[in-house]
């Protein structure tokens, strides 16, 4: 397959994915029992309003318009590059997402890199010798954290480090009551530590367990046996053959974990009141802010798709079996 065709194929795939995801999210939102007026205006306020006012509000929230008409209208705007205007924030969706994304991206990037590095290191430690002490400890740790929900870990961290020890702030992205000009980088970092830690915690176990499994298989392979027969030390076997052969799956795993980080961020940001993309998604979902939620969906799906595609491309570039195989064809 030549590269132009491949790129075309990827774009087509992405289009299909986005279409499927947006239709699903929209369908779920239309089925949602949440009444936008009651939620956002309030029962009492609604009662004191005139019929005219209520009608105006209904128009604003799109009550009574058939879902297909609303979806097609939204999709038409999307194709023109317009994500619409957030009903809750009363600002263009793209602006809200841009701001939130900027807050979240550092948090997620930190969690992503942290879970990748620590997970890989723990996986190597465990997989070097299946059944050894390090393996038992790491596997035990991973099984515990893997079966613990991220939001629960977030609450425990919050309780221990913010409430009891008071080492770190209890939430938000910047100190309360400080003008944004005065916020320093160290303030931002201090606010990010706990959410990033909570977010990376579950990611670590996933990556560590996969890495362990792969490395253990490599260490029991014929070529490692032969390397030992040729007098290579355990250290040399691990570095020359072990790491070489697990680098590729680790890379794939790392890029595929982008989706998990995104998913986790929704819960973790909620716990820490961190004004990121995840929290905006929850607010938009609960408040029936359809344009904002759809916008977040599109952006998130695109980023996750990008992560998986990046893994695909890197694999093809790095693995000689795929690289040379493609050339031959």
């Amino acid at each position: 397959m030549d590269s132009a065709k491949w790129v075309g194929m990827q774009i087509l795939r992405m289009a299909v994915l986005l279409a499927a995801v947006t239709v699903t999210v929209f369908a779920l939102l239309s089925l949602s029992p949440v009444d936008p007026l009651t939620t956002n205006v309030g029962q009492t306020a609604l009662g004191s309003m005139s019929a005219e006012q209520v009608k105006k509000l209904q128009e604003y929230w799109g009550v009574g318009v058939p879902p297909t008409v609303r979806f097609l209208g939204w999709a038409k705007d999307l194709l023109r590059g317009d994500l619409g205007i957030s009903l809750l924030y009363r600002r263009p969706v793209i602006e809200v997402i841009g701001e939130r994304f900027f807050n979240s991206v550092w948090l997620m990037a930190a969690a992503w890199i942290l879970s990748g590095l620590i997970g890989f290191f723990l996986g190597v430690l465990a997989g070097r010798k299946r059944g050894g002490t390090a393996d038992k400890l790491v596997t035990g740790y991973c099984l515990i954290t893997a079966s613990t929900p991220a939001f629960w870990i977030a609450m425990v961290l919050l309780m221990v480090f913010a409430v009891w020890l008071k080492w770190l702030p209890i939430g938000l992205a910047v100190p309360i009551g400080m003008s944004s000009a005065d916020v320093s980088l160290s303030d931002r970092i201090a606010h990010m530590i706990l959410p990033a830690l909570a977010l990376s915690m579950t990611g670590i176990s996933n990556i560590a367990l996969h890495t362990r499994e792969k490395l253990a298989a490599v260490m029991e392979s014929d070529y490692v046996l032969f390397a030992r027969a040729r007098g290579e030390t355990e250290r040399s076997v691990l570095i020359r053959h072990g790491l070489r052969n697990i680098a590729l799956p680790a890379l794939t795993l790392q890029f595929a974990s982008v989706s998990e980080i995104f998913g986790g961020s929704v819960l973790v940001e909620q716990v820490f009141s961190y004004p990121g993309l995840g929290q905006a998604a929850v607010t938009a979902g609960l408040g029936s802010d359809v344009p904002l939620l759809m916008g977040i969906t599109v952006i998130t799906a695109a980023v996750v798709f990008g992560g998986n595609t990046a893994a695909n491309i890197l694999y093809g570039l790095i693995d000689p079996r795929m690289r040379k195989g493609r050339k031959k064809r």
């Binding site: 392979s221 014929d222 070529y223 046996l225 032969f226 390397a227 027969a229 040729r230 020359r240 053959h241 070489r244 052969n245 590729l248 693995d319 000689p320 079996r321």
Partner: peptide
């Protein structure tokens, strides 16, 4: 040792 097959060579 001269092993028996290609699986004794590091594939990468």
């Amino acid at each position: 040792l001269v092993p028996q097959s290609v699986s004794y060579l590091d594939p990468l």
